[in-house]
Computed example of a mutant assay.
Amino acid sequence: MMLRNAAGRRAVATAATAVSLALALTACSGTTKDSEVSGSAKAGSSAKADPDAPLKKGLKIAFLPKQINNPYEKIVDEAGIAAAEEYGGTGKEVGPSDANASSQVSYINTLIQQRQDAILIAANDPNAVCGPLKQAMKKGIKVVAYDSDTAKDCRQLFINQASSEEIGRSLVQHLGEQIGHKGKIAILSATQNATNQNTWIEYMKEELKLPAYKDMELVKVAYGDDADQKSFQQTQGLMQAYPDLKGIISPTTVGIAAAARYLSDSSYKGKVVLNGLGTPNQMRKYVKDGTVEQFSLWNPEELGHLGSYAAAALASGQITGAEGEKFEAGKLGEYTIGKDGEVILGEPTVFDSKNIDTFDF
């Protein structure tokens, strides 16, 4: 999906890292899974990167999404599992059917018992998963957060889909242009504790403080918990509470699709602007029937591919998670680790009626 070559992607990734929100600290060196690290699981002491080390064969990696039935995260995880096959490893996806804060904990404990080489997690809550993730790192299991970060010292890397600031501010910018920078707006988020959602929303609020938005008012942040029916009901509730609402931003693929479904069959179709983050295949019909003019996203397949190769590089000793280290991500080319162990995939793409049919995911 990314509309540039590998060199351009790397340049953007490096530049964007400089302005991206620092979500977590650079993390940890590890030992083998047969011994435990003394003291903190964070980086810092003995392990050194060997950039010339080959990727190990037979690596076992596990993707732990926010919830197992999330269609967006299914795309990410399946791409990461396919990437593992490219470098001679095996991957799998496990996870809860709900997105509650503590739902992922039991799965992390099981993955530790199974002696996985790496766990990739999209955290439902930045803190609830920290205890077991630290235990995993103490046992030499590498931990990579993707899509939604953990707390500061609970992973070695965070694979961020794009600059958090760019995502949050651009969604407000797009919606502002669509409604003429006037009127009441609302946000339909996922769960209240989702790290990525809250970070984007904070940048949305910062953007709204600028003079250009003095005639726009954020009246509500609603939470659909990344559940289709609840997101649908939250959209309905927003319109009942604020019948003069001019726009909704939904920075979650489940939420924006549910909101579009409600608006498409209501008297608000064409009157309330809906923008946010969604997949082309989910949103195509709503773009074509006039419910939605535009929305944004990155390529979730590339996000999974990058996360998988980053985990393999960690587990093979090519990198430790320190700023400035480099690794190859297969077909995506070389990436550089930025501040606080963050690796940025690249810039999001804006989808509209002119380009949506050129994408299939």
Rank of each mutant, 00 (worst) to 15 (best):
A62Q: 04
K33P: 13
D50Y: 03
A62D: 02
N70Q: 08
A43F: 12
A41F: 07
S46R: 06
G39I: 11
D52E: 13
A53N: 08
A22K: 14
K74T: 15
K66F: 00
P54G: 03
T26P: 15
T31F: 01
L21P: 11
D50N: 12
L25R: 10
K56L: 15
K57V: 10
A13Q: 03
G30T: 15
D52M: 11
L21D: 00
D34A: 14
P51N: 02
P54Y: 04
Y72Q: 06
I61Y: 00
K57I: 08
A49P: 14
L23W: 07
G58S: 04
S20D: 15
G30C: 14
N70S: 14
C28Q: 04
L23I: 15
V76Q: 00
S29L: 07
P71W: 03
K56M: 12
T14R: 02
P71K: 10
L55R: 08
G58L: 05
Y72M: 08
E36D: 12
I75C: 02
K57G: 11
S46I: 11
A53W: 08
L25P: 08
K60G: 05
K48M: 10
L25Y: 09
T14W: 01
F63N: 00
K66I: 03
S46G: 12
S35T: 15
E36I: 12
S40L: 10
